[in-house]
Design a protein around this nucleic acid. Structure first.
Lengths: 209, 209
DNA sequence: GCGCGTATCGGTCTCAGGACCGATGCGCGG
DNA sequence: CCGCGCATCGGTCCTGAGACCGATACGCGC
């Protein structure tokens, strides 16, 4: 039996969620909270398997409550359910330890599927949130680097922390050649030092393992 | 009318998708492809609004086909639909430009919702894929840097590309002090040059990567 | 053929970066 | 009180980095 805690400042929303969750076999709402502080307190006294958490709540917002609950019990799964689909919420929530992020206008059937998924350790985000998360992850198309293939190789090695001499050895060319390429990169990317090259490489997604 | 291209090496799957898509108002399958190369060719002759793409295909796999189609037409939306839910696929697909990633056992209703979402610019991933993407995103603060608060400030500025002199001006201290902090950072983080510091900062998520 | 871009190489020169030496003041805990 | 860590500052010394100068060779299109 998955023990669910519902945290929302609106009693109607809580009741609605409770009905929905209780209708799912294997799930049961064992507690409710109207504030973030209450949610933390309830979670502390009786650890939930899953928390349905609103973001906007008095005393302590849902993000901070999520952070504390997850800090106290890393096994806890938190599914943020909110009216808004704002970036700061999503990223903050994920960093705080939330497992999922859904909008309140999500159809009940999908919400149930999400609850199941989150309870089993998977994650679900609303479409917009997923898109932005992906964009953050592959924020490549930001600026496409207009450099030659060889320069790209050199840039990657620079971004890995190799010195010019080390790059020369790696590519089987002389130090002079590497310096030429680096200078060309500095010019093309508008960088002053190789540090800027490293930053550009990370921003462009050329590296990042 | 959203023009959809279905790419899968199995005719039955293609037929199934075609029926499903055509049943959605506003969507129509205008072409099919049995290989990645065919998909690229069809997309080149008649640009699709949306592509349903299998990963495992002869000649050219779905990832590479996605890369070429997206490179040729950045407006193209590609939804990867595959039997497997492997990491390399997901990350490769996203980097290649895919907008979504779903499993073939996804219920038709959810698949339709996904198609709509992708067509409208949003994204959808399978639960497992979303979880791993989130883990990648928030795996930053994994390695905690054992440095002082002041050193952290200096590190961030170094990672932003500032020279020691610029950092000194920013923090209202002398060049000597900055050099001391930088040296301390180099020692603590096991770095040889400030480039390594930048890398460490990005890996640790101290700066937006 | 000629121009152009790319990749390769060599030299000189200046300077920021970093090592290594020293120092002071301050807060904090044994 | 005394030791310790942190932040601050000053000096010397050496080296890699990068600018700037030059060059050759190759492939490509006009």
């Amino acid at each position: 039996m998955i023990k669910v805690l519902v945290a929302d400042d609106q009693p109607l929303i809580r009741a609605s969620f409770r009905r929905l969750i209780d209708s799912v076999p294997g799930f049961q709402v064992y507690g409710e909270a109207a504030t973030g502080a209450q949610a933390v307190a309830v979670a502390a006294s009786e650890p939930p398997d899953l928390v349905l958490m609103d973001v906007r709540m008095p005393e302590l917002d849902g993000i901070e409550a999520t952070r504390r609950i997850c800090a106290a019990d890393p096994r806890a799964r938190v599914l943020i359910v909110t009216t808004f689909d704002l970036d700061e919420y999503v990223y903050g929530a994920l960093r705080a330890g939330a497992t999922g992020f859904l909008l309140k206008d999500t159809p009940p059937a999908e919400l149930i599927r999400s609850v199941r998924a989150v309870a089993s350790g998977d994650s679900l985000l609303g479409p917009g949130a997923t898109r932005r998360l992906i964009e953050r992850y592959v924020s490549r198309p930001a600026r496409r680097l207009d450099i030659t293939e060889r320069e790209r190789e050199v840039l990657v090695l620079v971004a890995r922390g190799l010195s010019n001499a080390e790059i020369a050895q790696t590519l089987y060319v002389t130090l002079s050649t590497v310096k030429t390429h680096v200078s060309s990169l500095l010019l093309k990317l508008g960088a002053r030092t190789r540090v800027h090259l490293v930053i550009a490489a990370y921003e462009a997604g050329l590296v990042q393992g």
